[in-house]
Simulated assay, not measured.
Amino acid sequence: MQGVRRIDAMRKSMYETRMTEKSHVALSRISLYHLPDAASRYLFLTVLRAGWIDAAPGGGVSRSACPGDDVLYCLSGRGEVRIGADTYRLTPGQLVWIAGDVPHAHSADQNDPWSVMWFRIQGPDLPMLRLRVFGQGTPRVTIASGAEMIAWFQGLFSILADPRPGVDVRLNAVLGRFLELLTGPANSEARSILPASLDRLIQALMQRPESRWTAEDMARIARLSSSQLRRLFHQHMGVSPRTFLRNQRLVQAQRLMQESGMSLQQIAERCGFFDAFHFSREFKKVVGQSPSSWRESEWGN
């Protein structure tokens, strides 16, 4: 329990900035490690390392790759992060997600070195998770509520410092909360905040997925060119407009299969598919089983 007592003693200082007198030696306030069991590595999001460091001027690290991704949250000071060919400045209240599968580096400012809380995340498909959170955009966000993010780190440190049975399940749960904080509507740079043009189109597609939408129809609703629309849709939604529309049609079809006695042909026509064959082909490709098998399993006996 020594780690827990150490963290409890630091609760107050977590909400304070670094010492105004700058040191030329890095101060590691917290440094924690975790070794997940083999099954958890494939089942859950987990954390391999985490900590809180007051960096020395210019201090940093450069790697060709590392297991897992690093997430840095800047409490004070400034620093620079390089991910592949891209470079980002990090200032207080900003968070950056560093892909571990590409060359990367980060370093503190020479004149105003940062104080950062950080952790290394590992999971089954981190590239897909990054795409889901950031789309094709910048993996850096400004956190609207610094107190909430600091409290989240405090909870993470407490879990890692007291590795009772079930720690990997608890880490998976706390990482879910982190993703909620990261993509919540309060964070203006988060991917979940859609441009008005996309929001207008998405609402229309969700309300009328059965309509015979053409590329021109979508561009007209969004008030964008077709190429602009495709680019923005991929950036913010991670899929094309056509794929999003297909998925909305399949969701509507599932509801009708479960809640009505309509035939598959009727459902296909009602949901905007060309015919029952087209509907069945798309359904099986996405869901993994035929519509009739899905309906039978959902209805049961």
Rank of each mutant, 00 (worst) to 15 (best):
Q136N: 11
A204K: 01
N111M: 15
R130H: 07
Q136S: 13
W97G: 03
R223M: 06
Q136H: 11
A186N: 01
D199N: 12
G135A: 07
P165I: 01
I221Y: 05
T142L: 07
S158A: 15
S145D: 11
M149E: 07
H104V: 03
R82M: 13
A196V: 02
R177G: 08
A190P: 01
A186P: 00
L156W: 02
G146K: 08
V102C: 06
H106M: 13
E189Q: 09
D217A: 11
G100F: 01
L95F: 00
E189D: 11
R212C: 13
Q110Y: 12
G135D: 01
D125R: 13
A190V: 02
L181Y: 01
H104N: 05
M128I: 04
V102Y: 02
L182G: 00
I202Q: 05
W118N: 11
L179M: 10
L194A: 01
I83G: 09
F119V: 03
R140W: 04
I159M: 08
E210I: 15
I143G: 06
V96D: 01
S158V: 06
T142M: 11
A144E: 04
F134I: 07
P113K: 02
E148A: 14
M128V: 07
Q122A: 15
Q122D: 15
W118D: 06
L129R: 04
M206I: 14
E216K: 14
A105I: 08
